[in-house]
Computed example of a mutant assay.
Amino acid sequence: MASHRRPKQPTRARVTVLTATAAAAVALTSQAAHADPKPTKSEVKAKVDKLYEEAEVATEKFNGAKEKQGELEKQVEGLRDKVARGQDELNKLRGGLGSMATAQYRSGGIDPSLQLLLSSDPDSYLAKASTLQQLSGKQVEALRKIADKQRTLTQQRTEATTKLADLETTRKELGEKKSEVQGKLAEAQKLLNTLTAQERQEIQEQEQRASRAGQEQAEAASNKEVPASGRGGAALAAGKTKIGTPYVYGATGPNSFDCSGFTGWAYAQVGVKLPRISQDQANAGTRIGRDELKPGDLVIFYGDLHHVGLYAGNGQVLHAPRTGTNVRYESINNMPFQFGVRIG
């Protein structure tokens, strides 16, 4: 006899699982269909260039913090030396008063006025005019010296404490800027790694061709454009000897440079000391317009003045561009020109 039992229906839980699985599959298919396409070589390069620019901004701030740290360390050390010498001088002055007290004790007892002289607060004692009549001129002068020395030591200790606090703040800022630079560079490298080896090679060759073209243009102008000064021309000549030297943030040569480290090194070779960072180099001489530029002048770029190079003539700049590149020529039009600086 045939069975008339109804087919077994799926449970509610099973239906729910199947529905969820189907929905997920549809969602994944939809996401795959609408996923962002892989960025092109040009798009990757644009993003990388932006990150390198941001890294250079942080680099100049890093350089400024590092320079400030060095100055504060010298100031703190100088103040510590002054305090140590001042304490020795104060001890000798007090020792002189002690000798007076010893002599009086041997002769029958210490004068009450001299006991006050040996107190820890000579200023309050000097304020008592009536008491001064009990002292000799020599004792009064000794007491005044002690009071002056104590005031000086107090001021120096306070100043040293303030400088130490500034130094700690600067060290913290230095660490933050270093981390920021490293983070930007790591992000840029991660983007570059999304390109094929051939694409990365093509970008590098493109930059090398542009640098060679810039060098040719600058050399073609060498007989036409006269440097603004002998030192400017000599600084540019020194800079040319470093073509191909790698960019390294925070470096000042001679085997690697950042932008302001390169210009500072070039001028140092002709006896001119420039400030460490680009923003300060922007104020190191006379500002001039683009039409006034001569070979050897500094060229300042970007609104916040975070990049600097040497004008090489014929619209070309010799500079240390960014991480991943070497000292090279580049068109002045490749970056937002602000002004030139002529070093007198």
Rank of each mutant, 00 (worst) to 15 (best):
N223S: 12
V17S: 04
K273L: 05
W265E: 03
Q150R: 15
G108Q: 12
K50F: 03
R209E: 04
A228F: 06
L135T: 10
T21I: 07
L305Y: 15
G250Q: 09
Q215E: 11
T263H: 06
E168W: 04
T161E: 13
V15Y: 01
S120Q: 12
E56Q: 05
V83I: 15
A58D: 04
R14W: 02
A238P: 00
A282R: 15
T21R: 10
E330Q: 12
K273M: 07
D121H: 12
A210N: 06
K149F: 07
K128G: 00
D304N: 15
A234W: 09
R171T: 05
T154P: 01
E199L: 08
A142H: 14
D111I: 04
H319P: 00
N91G: 02
G309V: 06
D121Y: 09
A251H: 10
S260T: 04
E77T: 12
A160D: 12
R106Q: 13
S42M: 04
I146Q: 15
D258T: 07
T102C: 00
L298N: 11
V17E: 04
R80N: 13
A282M: 11
E207N: 05
L135A: 13
P39V: 08
I300S: 04
V299T: 14
N255W: 01
G214S: 12
R322C: 01
R80P: 00
R5Y: 05
V17Q: 09
S331W: 08
V317I: 15
V327Y: 11
I110H: 13
L135V: 09
A213L: 11
A22C: 06
G313T: 10
A13Q: 07
T323L: 01
L126K: 15
E205C: 01
R212V: 03
Y52E: 03
P321M: 10
R231I: 07
K38F: 00
I277Q: 11
I332V: 08
V44N: 01
P275E: 12
E176L: 10
G95N: 02
G183K: 13
A165M: 11
R290G: 08
R80K: 14
Q9N: 01
L274G: 08
E292C: 10
T131R: 09
N333R: 14
F301I: 12
H307M: 07
R12M: 01
S211F: 02
S222M: 09
E141A: 15
E173D: 08
L116M: 08
P246M: 02
A237Y: 01
A210G: 03
G98L: 08
A84Y: 12
L153N: 13
L305T: 14
Q189F: 03
G78W: 07
E71I: 12
Q338D: 01
D148W: 08
L310Q: 06
R144H: 13
N283K: 15
F262P: 02
R200T: 02
G303L: 04
A210K: 06
G239K: 03
N255Y: 07
Q139P: 04
G309Y: 11
S124G: 00
